[in-house]
Nucleic acid binder design. Structure first.
Lengths: 195, 195
DNA sequence: CTCGAAAATCTAGCACTGCTAGACAGGCGA
DNA sequence: TCGCCTGTCTAGCAGTGCTAGATTTTCGAG
């Protein structure tokens, strides 16, 4: 029984080892460098071992993506506004920083379309956590507006800035102005406040 | 001289034939189906012919993307607001329709990072045209705000909705509300109008 | 301690990818 | 008609994700 447990524990450790290795490789050399051969070499096992843990390469990327959602949720949670800064702005800056500093991870999460069950079905808890943080940041400026839909607007805008910004499709000179405009637009003006 | 011209003309036609074939294949079966072999078969030439026109597969995708920008510009140009509809809304709906109906083309343009020189360098005219249409749509609600930066906010928001929406990362039930909220936020409230 | 079944792992290979060197063809001017 | 040059093709390379079958390791029964 105990040895059975040890087996399972070792197996779980190796499972995580593979995910970590894939993420490290992707973050240091890009997803193109994450081949099953290089990954196998990195974890010091042969390729078929990878397939005993994951159905295929896609499944590995998916696992990395889901854990990445957890990372993002943590970053957002610990992003508290400094004096005079709105919570919305603190969240926006934390989100954009995450996307900027961990582009490969961000890609796996939100750019590459891997059929993670985001739909009603069985959304990973990590993503719900991250979205929940965004909801909390939006809530103060909500007014009478639909909270979740408004959060989706916030999220999609940040996502658009993050993905178009990288690759130089946006003018870096406008980075600050652009974010100011977005936050200003999403925030209610005074007369709408009690509406 | 004339036969030289004919040669060049035939070559240009074949150039376009390759681009069209790549786009058609991508739009009907996805970019994964666009292999150099299948593409060569479709244009009824051998693979090396492709490489005499384009430096590599990436260059072909890039050509498709640039022409796609032209298509988008045209769609936006002919999107005129119906009675009582704002120009901003007409543009937003046209943009989202384009992204929804031609996902593969949209991917080549704005999702896959292909080092198209968007940066100051030598941005393709087609993209400038498309952006110009967005600028024109934003102008009426500009107020005192920075026009180009505001247009970038508009664009990034639409892009975020388009890319996250596909793949089911957003709740389809909120589609209308979400767009309403975005347009409402970007539009000026009355008291800001003359500011 | 030894054996044999079962579990775990590896080797070697498939079909595919983007890409290219070298063989081959056709039309052109001399 | 010849030789050249441009254009095209055949065949192949190194790499990909993935897997069948051989091989090793593990571990309890005798």
């Amino acid at each position: 029984m105990s040895i059975q447990n040890r087996r399972e524990r070792e197996r779980a450790e190796r499972h995580q080892l593979i995910i970590d290795a894939a993420r490290d490789l992707a973050e240091s050399e890009g997803w193109d460098a994450v081949t099953t051969r290089r990954l196998a070499e990195k974890v010091e096992y042969s390729q078929p071992v990878l397939y005993s843990h994951f159905k295929g390469k896609d499944a590995i990327v998916r696992a990395v993506a889901i854990q990445g959602c957890g990372d993002l949720a943590r970053e957002l949670r610990k992003a508290r506004p400094s004096r005079g800064e709105s919570r919305l702005r603190a969240a926006a800056e934390a989100y954009l920083r995450f996307a900027r500093e961990r582009p490969a991870l961000y890609d796996a999460m939100f750019v590459q379309q891997s059929d993670i069950p985001w739909g009603t079905d069985e959304v990973p808890q990590e993503l719900l956590d991250a979205f929940g943080e965004l909801v909390a940041a939006v809530e103060p400026v909500r007014g009478e507006r639909h909270l979740e839909a408004l959060t989706e607007v916030f999220w999609t805008s940040l996502h658009g800035i993050a993905t178009l910004g990288r690759g130089g499709r946006l003018r870096p000179a406008y980075d600050d102005t652009r974010l100011d405009l977005l936050l200003g637009a999403l925030s209610l003006t005074k007369d709408e406040h009690g509406l």
